[in-house]
Structures are given as C-alpha cells and as structure tokens.
Nucleic acid binder design. Structure first.
Lengths: 254, 254
DNA sequence: AGGAATTTGTCCGTATGTATA
DNA sequence: TTATACATACGGACAAATTCC
C-alpha cells in the first residue's frame, strides 16, 4: 500500500492539490495507472477534477518529486514507479562526518607489514583468503601525548602499497590519501559495528585489561575497481558511543 | 563555491527563475545572506528582480528543495545552510530497514509501567528528569518460541499512554503504531550504538550471565511535537552486528 | 524532411486563506 | 487583535519540446 504523507489522509479540508495527489497515488497503487503507461494530460486532469491546471500541476510536481512519475515537455507524463522513493536518509557532507572524529585527531603509525588474509578477515575486508594485503597498525589520539581514541588495523590491497608510505605523519585520513593518490573515487562505504572483547594488543593501547568491552567498527571503502582500504577500529566500550541521525525525506528533484 | 545545477550556468537565455536562483545562491555563498538570517520576502524579491511573485516562488521552491533555505508560513524564509547538498547518504526505503530485522519477528510484551525518569535515561530519551513516562518492557523473537533477538525498553511520553494498549500482540513496530494512532509524523530518528555489559534482567532474556557483552541501540523517534518513543534495544554481543552502507550521491539528471 | 498538433514549461496577474509574530 | 508573509487557487498567455502525420 502506497502511503505518501500528503496523500494518505487528504480529507475534505485538505488542499485541493492534496486530494488530487491522493487520488492519483491511489490509481497508481491499484494499477489503474500502470508503470510505463501514460498519465492523462494536465488538461484532462484539470477537467476531471474541476481544478485549474496550476493546481493539477502542484499535485503532479509532488508526484514527480517523490519519484512516481516522469514528465517530459512535449511527451507527457509516464508512471515510472509504484513504490515510493526513499523516505529516510542519513547524510554526510563528507566522509569525515562518518568518523565523527574531530579533525584535529592525531595518528601514530606502529607498523606496516604484509599478511596473508585468513578466512575471517578476508570475508570482512572483501578479499580472498590467502591473498596478501598490507596491514597497517596504528593508534589515533586526541592529540600527541593525549588520550587514545582508537586502535586501528587497516588493510590495503597490495597494488596500492606504494601509497602507504605517505601515511606516516599524515594529517588526512587514510582513505582520503588513497583516494587522492590512486585517483580512484570512493563509491560507497560499508560499515559494521559490533561489541567485542578487546584482544591483548588493543587493550595495551588503552592501558586496559584484555577482554575489556570495546566497540569495533569495520569500514570498507570501495571504489569501482574494488576495495580501496578496509579498517578495523576498536574503541573503548566504556567511553565511546556511535551516534547517528536519520532524517525524513530527502530533498530531491525530478 | 556553491553549485546548484540550475544556478551555476544561468545565462542570459535561461528561465527567469533560474537566474534568480543563481543570484540568490551567489548571495548565500558570499555570505550576503548569512545562515540563520532572514531572506527578503517574496514581494521584495519580486520587486527587485522585476518578476512576478510566482516566478520568485519557483526559485525559492528549488532553493528549499536543495536544503538551502527553510520557509514557514507567516514567519518568512531563513537560510539554513550555505553548503551544497550532501555527498554521501545512507538511505532507508522505510524505517523498518533501520531495524534490519526481518518483518516476521515477533514481539512479546512483558510489562507496562509508569516510571519517573532518572537523570541518565532522561538525557538519552530527551526528556526531563523526574518526569513520568511509560516504560514498556518486552522481548523481540525470531518467531514465537524461537530465538530472542533483543530485549527492549521503550519509553513513551505519558500523553500517548492511551495508544500503548495496542502494543500487545501487534505486528507493526511500536513507532509505526504510535505514528499512525497519534497522527504525528516522524521527522527524524536519532540512534546511538554502544557496547555495554548486560544488566541482569537482559541477561535473563538471553539465558546468559549478567555482564555478558551486548550491543545496545538507543533509538529516539522524533516528531515536530517532540519525542514519540525512545527505545533501548539490547542485542547479544556475540551474535549481533549492525551493518550499514553509505553511498556516494549520484549526480541527478535533469 | 517538414509542418501541425499536442503536451509540458515558463510567466504574468489576481485573490483569498492561514500560520506567525 | 493586527499586520505580515507564505500557501493555495484561479485565470490567461506564449514558449519549447516532442510526436505524428
């Protein structure tokens, strides 16, 4: 059942365009207007609903905004979808927002090595078990000599090894360096969040006991050519909270 | 530099509204219209650009669609952002996606009570300490008699108490029931994720020991009139992973 | 290929309703 | 309560894109 906010409860006192919108949505929902088929023209709808063309256009504009129809000058209006478009989004003006880290954090690189992926890690970084990747280990701090924020394992495909030397002392996040240096563009980021007990190595970074609670974030930055970098970030469970906000309805044009 | 599709190259032959749009964007970009400040009224802009109010509205409508301004009847138009549209988004076709639960999960209500919020909970549900809210306790299962997915504490403002009786045996998620019954629309969802030790009560639900690790999700569903419902969901740390994917925003066609 | 008919896009004027300050 | 400003709605006109002979 389609439910567009304006349409679903367009009662007797709603704006005229809202009632028209509701009626049109109902017809799309019931299949009276089928996908790929032509909608009546503005003039026809105007006559049917005894409303001005302007008012009909307002209803059609909203249908278009919501992605139900597509309109082309001269060609008319066709139904392109009977399911509403995305209604809720979390948006980031940049990938840095995803990190939620203040920009002034400080990264200290501990080691770079080449490792063969075991089955578990391979699956999570989207690689092949046995394949060799670079493993970069480091810790992110609030400031040099400050408080540790996260213990980080970053996996980088071997062909990007040449770029990794720039990591030392760099201010930018790794993915940004790799994106810039490799010329590839990050198309999407996949993230997993889970509660895990700290391995010894991680606990050491925080001065805690092995087995302490931690929040582990896995992030995979993916370009068209595949994984650019995948990172495991362990945060102190007693201090770190991942916060996010999802908004209703994206502003989107036809 | 702000670049709105229509605005960036609004030349001499473009539609009037596009030229107005470009001019307004330029002013926002240059800080002549500052964030939080009031834009001239439709009438003023209409006069300045020697265009009809309708045409000015077309430009303003697009600025609004793109999230640069916010318009309120009676109150006028204010600039809310000077940055171009966001570049990365996580989208949900419905809020149910946020849950990542198969729709066929089964909820069992354990208790409903009235509680006074303590300082900690008050802050997290966005309430006032000492205020009385409804606390609904229950467990979500994969199926009746199946495996427990989450132990849930839901806090509902007292004025919505009348709706809570519908919770028992309902198939829909709570927020959906409340949204429907109250007639309010969820404008955004705030979520926090953290790793915590299970309280005794939660551990009992899973047949685990107190102190077992768990992933706690707090979700606050907010309408224009305030919090609709806030839920704490505890998941088994050893079995539950929160997964999300952020996409690079595709350029829109026109 | 070309011209006519169709359909949406843009633009103007005007009027009234409604939320806000 | 009053004034303001946006929302809705009507009317008409011409332009631009597309489709169809």
């Amino acid at each position: 059942m389609i439910e567009a906010r304006e349409g679903s409860q367009a009662g007797i006192d709603s704006p005229i365009y809202a009632r028209i919108l509701a009626k049109l949505l109902e017809r799309i929902d019931l299949g009276q207007y089928k996908v790929d088929s032509q909608l009546p023209t503005e003039a026809q709808l105007s006559e049917e609903f005894a409303a001005s063309r302007h008012t009909v256009r307002e209803a059609l504009r909203r249908l278009s905004d919501q992605g139900f129809i597509r309109r082309r000058q001269g060609a008319g209006t066709i139904v392109v979808s009977s399911t509403p478009r995305t209604q809720y989004v979390q948006s980031f003006s940049s990938l840095t927002d995803l990190f939620q880290n203040a920009v002034e954090t400080h990264y200290v690189l501990h080691s770079v090595s080449t490792v063969a992926l075991d089955a578990d890690v391979a699956e999570r970084v989207n690689g092949v078990a046995g394949q060799e990747w670079l493993l970069v280990v480091g810790v992110r701090w609030t400031a040099p000599g400050g408080v540790p924020i996260a213990h980080i394992h970053s996996y980088v495909p071997k062909e990007l090894a040449g770029i990794v030397r720039n990591f030392t002392g760099a201010q930018m996040p790794f993915y940004a360096i790799l994106e810039k240096e490799s010329g590839r563009i990050i198309e999407n980021v996949y993230q997993e969040i889970r509660a895990v007990d700290m391995p010894q190595e991680v606990a050491n970074s925080f001065g805690l006991q092995r087995g302490s609670r931690s929040l582990q974030l896995l992030r995979r930055y993916v370009t068209q050519k595949g994984v650019l970098i995948a990172s495991f970030n362990w945060h102190r469970g007693d201090q770190f909270t991942y916060k996010m906000q999802i908004e209703r309805r994206v502003p989107e044009k036809r």
